[in-house]
């Protein structure tokens, strides 16, 4: 397959390897070491690292600056960018800023509503939505033009990703929605955390039936539970999350001190199962505030060592 960008993630996927990505949330402060330490911990076990963009609408160090810290460490960042906080001027401008540091991956998102965060009284922008942001980046990269029509000197060279949540409602539009993102120009997808394996596989099968799986690389999202409480919280409180009762039960039936271990076990079992599923091109391991477990998950899932592509 011909490569469209200089992205290492694209290279790994195009070479047919199962890719592994993970993510780091920037700090509520300006200490760069929070990012560099987390990255140091996982860097040999992943191909690229997402930097979240003010996730759950809580104000943090900006994704772009954190991505630059990774880049300076010689790592491969995935710049998450939400449409909540920036209009099309700011979006394009930040994309160029990222491109100036040769950041080669972007994940286009709409972002959680600001009412979840620390600035519930703030305005939201949503000048574009996530699909339109995908189109915008592709336009800038492929046409070398701004949305306003002018030429871009040294256009961004970015592999364009988006999220997909097969578990949000209504289910019947989840495959059409993927088709729509592909039509908008998305090249890789990182899925929402998967706990309902059957539903995820059904979604992939339906996507496959429509011939979508050849058109996009899908990375399956996994998040280990640390406690039974976390499983219950995710089930009840997190919008668009589907945690089957038996998974909650399995965590709850485990003695408290063994629960972290059980959570990791479940996560590894999921990866093992999904590795065999058609259309899964890799894994996005989101160990939320538990980054130190990423190496173990990757190793025990048989995804280590990571391929070298350069």
């Amino acid at each position: 397959m011909k490569l469209k960008t200089l992205s290492k993630l694209e290279k790994i996927l195009a070479a047919g390897h199962l890719a592994v990505t993970s993510e780091c949330g920037p700090p509520r402060g300006s200490d760069p070491e929070v990012i560099t330490k987390k990255a140091e911990m996982i860097k040999d076990y992943v191909d690229a690292i997402n930097i979240t963009d003010n996730q759950t609408s809580v104000t943090r160090m900006c994704s772009l600056a954190a991505c630059i810290h990774l880049k300076l460490m010689g790592l491969e960042p995935i710049l998450q960018m939400v449409t909540r906080d920036r209009n099309r001027i700011a979006l394009q401008s930040d994309i160029l800023g990222a491109a100036s540091y040769d950041i080669h991956n972007i994940l286009c998102l709409s972002g959680d509503h600001q009412s979840f965060g620390d600035c519930a009284q703030g305005q939201n922008v949503h000048d574009l939505d996530s699909m339109q942001l995908i189109q915008a980046v592709r336009h800038m990269r492929d046409e070398g033009k701004f949305l306003g029509g002018g030429d871009i000197e040294r256009p961004p060279n970015m592999f364009v990703g988006a999220a997909a949540n097969p578990f949000a409602d209504p289910f019947e539009i989840r495959v059409p929605r993927l088709a729509k993102k592909i039509a908008a120009g998305v090249e890789f997808i990182q899925s929402q955390c998967i706990y309902n394996m059957d539903k995820f596989e059904l979604w992939l099968k339906m996507a496959g039936d429509r011939g979508l799986l050849e058109k996009v690389y899908i990375l399956a999202g996994v998040t280990p539970f640390k406690t039974a409480g976390m499983a219950r919280y995710m089930k009840k409180r997190v919008p668009g999350m589907d945690v089957p009762d038996e998974v909650v039960k399995r965590m709850a039936d485990t003695p408290k001190e063994k629960q972290p271990e059980e959570g990791i076990k479940i996560c590894i079992e999921q990866i093992q199962r999904l590795k065999e599923v058609e259309g899964v091109h890799g894994f996005h391991v989101m160990a939320i505030e538990w980054e130190e477990m990423v190496p173990e998950i990757v190793k025990k899932s048989g995804l280590y060592p990571r391929p070298s592509v350069d």
Partner: peptide
């Protein structure tokens, strides 16, 4: 959002 729903629709 003009091409929704977002991932939060439940």
């Amino acid at each position: 959002v003009f091409n929704g729903p977002c991932g939060g629709s439940t």
